[in-house]
């Protein structure tokens, strides 16, 4: 029982938290700008590289260095929006999708040019798990940090969306852009805010992932498809849906290796990355609006 919790369920939660933060940004930009942003994974990766360089330059611990890295990444994202996406507002969404695909290539190759392709650690060495509840629960400190920071950020995003003026405007635009414009909402300001939130959560996802693994130039692209799956699963434009979707996919991926009643894994781990997609496709067929009744375009 505890073996299941410690080695399958909790690692799934850790992975799920990272997917969830990434999916949050995808879901928001998809809901408000109405296109699937292929460059989201690269924004995540870029933020992790900024953090890496800031820790090297200033000696700050990674989580502290992540804050200025977020500011930098938000600036870059806003500049990219202006250059690559703004000209296509009102054009068919597919154009923006293709533009984001081009951006994905550009960001990744720029990072590879400036930082190289070697994987680099944010956190060296091995963290042995600490025990809680008399040894029933085993968690390494960095996982507590990952789960904790993810929760804090999710609550902050929730407060932003539900309590602030701009957050309410974001939800209004997501629900009905035409109506929102009629009521005098500054749609461009909403879009900027959306990019900012997406960039901040993406950087957080990237840094937390790097804490658990390392920083490398393909890290964003490797996470992109499961994050898309999480966003769809939860329902587009539904931040809490994205969080739930991320957790479901993260947990499903890890738990699928559990040797239920034997020594063989339930599902051959070679098919692990298929799980996210199988869940997603099943969800689309069964309930296209997602777990949390997101938008159906």
């Amino acid at each position: 029982m505890w073996e299941f919790v410690n080695f399958y369920f909790l690692p799934g939660v850790v992975l799920g938290c990272i997917y969830a933060l990434g999916a949050l940004g995808i879901s928001l930009t998809f809901g408000i700008l109405r296109f699937a942003n292929f460059a989201h994974g690269e924004i995540m990766m870029l933020g992790a590289y900024f953090t890496l360089s800031l820790t090297a330059l200033t000696g700050l611990p990674p989580l502290a260095a992540a804050l200025p890295a977020m500011a930098l990444t938000v600036a870059v994202t806003l500049a990219l929006d202006r250059a690559a996406f703004r000209p296509f507002r009102g054009a068919p969404a597919i154009i923006s999708v293709i533009a984001s695909f081009g951006l994905m290539l550009m960001i990744r190759s720029a990072v590879q040019f400036f930082w190289g392709v070697q994987p680099r650690p944010l956190l060296r060495g091995i963290q042995r798990p600490e025990s809680f509840l008399d040894g029933a629960i085993l968690l390494p400190p960095k996982h507590i940090v990952i789960i904790g920071s993810a929760l804090v950020l999710m609550v902050l995003v929730h407060l932003l969306l539900s309590r602030t003026r701009i957050g309410k405007a974001m939800r209004a635009v997501s629900d009905s852009p035409g109506l929102a414009r009629l009521t005098g909402i500054d749609v461009e300001a909403v879009i900027r805010a959306t990019w900012a939130v997406a960039a901040v959560t993406a950087v957080a996802a990237g840094v937390l992932l790097a804490l658990d693994t390392h920083v490398e130039s393909m890290m964003g692209f490797k996470m992109l498809l499961p994050m898309f799956a999480a966003a769809i699963l939860g329902g587009i434009g539904r931040p809490f849906g994205a969080v739930a979707g991320g957790l479901v996919i993260g947990i499903a991926e890890e738990v699928s290796s559990f040797p239920f009643g034997g020594t063989e894994a339930l599902l051959n781990p070679a098919y692990k990355s298929g799980i996210a997609f199988a869940i997603m496709v099943a969800m689309l067929i069964w309930r296209p609006s997602g777990l949390f009744k997101g938008r159906v375009f």
Binding site: F7, Y8, P11, L15, I18, K222, E254, S257, N268
Partner: peptide
């Protein structure tokens, strides 16, 4: 005792390790 294929580029292999480690 146990052999498993793993898909590269995943963020975590804890479940795989636990299954293999249990053998």
């Amino acid at each position: 005792a146990a052999s498993q294929v793993h898909e590269p580029n995943k963020a975590s292999y804890r479940a795989e390790m636990a299954t293999l480690g249990g053998a």
